[in-house]
Design a protein around this nucleic acid. Structure first.
Lengths: 112, 112
DNA sequence: TTTCGTTATGTCTTTGCAAATATAACGAAT
DNA sequence: ATTCGTTATATTTGCAAAGACATAACGAAA
């Protein structure tokens, strides 16, 4: 059985985490469900944790990543902006490219 | 201020962590000091934690990474095997290559 | 056979983070 | 004005990981 190489990447904006795997999962769930509370349930995390994650994302980003509405018909909701959708897409691409890159690099260890 | 991309990589052997940044730091400190207890002190972690890390490294690796001796002149000591030194070197190279690769990938986000 | 500094290991305590719980604020619709 | 399901936030509770502490085992040398 050979070795495996794994990685985690994240993007920071002046020392605050903007995006990581968990935040990207959350953003995708928001896009799918239309609300933060439903997204939290689908990921099986507390609403509070989800809110804190989303809050830090929006505070770190240069432009809004989601638009949240309180009250009104249905109680409110949350949805991704165009910018948010582009960020998610770019993160996924970079992550996948990183995995491919590292798999190649692993040869350096296998042949020792 | 632009975004920054960061990463952590680690190497696993059948679902156990073999090498990560912390373990590599420890191995380097062992090489420098010649003993596990001195290495732990230099890294400001408890001896127990250092021992647990080193133990899991040696249990996961295909070949011994350190040779530890108990008792005798000076009380004993620990030193890296050739294999251990090669692993550390390879890890550092892969890690640096990964950073360079990700820095290039970051452009995909900057231009959104 | 005593000393020494190390490796090796168990146990107990702390403590920082996660989870649970509670509740306020909101605004459209009725 | 009341209802409703959200977002937003504070407070309390629980727990697992980390740390502190203690001690056994070891072997060369004096």
């Amino acid at each position: 059985m050979g070795y495996k190489i794994k990685s985690r990447i994240w993007i920071e904006a002046d020392n605050n985490v903007l995006l990581g795997e968990g935040r990207v999962h959350l953003l995708k769930a928001i896009q799918k469900t239309g609300s933060l509370s439903k997204a939290a349930k689908s990921l099986d995390i507390s609403y509070k944790k989800a809110w804190q994650l989303l809050d830090s994302v929006n505070k770190s980003a240069k432009k809004p990543v989601t638009i949240n509405s309180i009250g009104g018909k249905g109680g409110g909701g949350a949805e991704l902006t165009e910018y948010g959708q582009a960020l998610v897409k770019a993160f996924d691409e970079i992550n996948k490219n990183c995995w491919d890159f590292l798999d190649k690099q692993l040869e350096k260890i296998e042949c020792i």
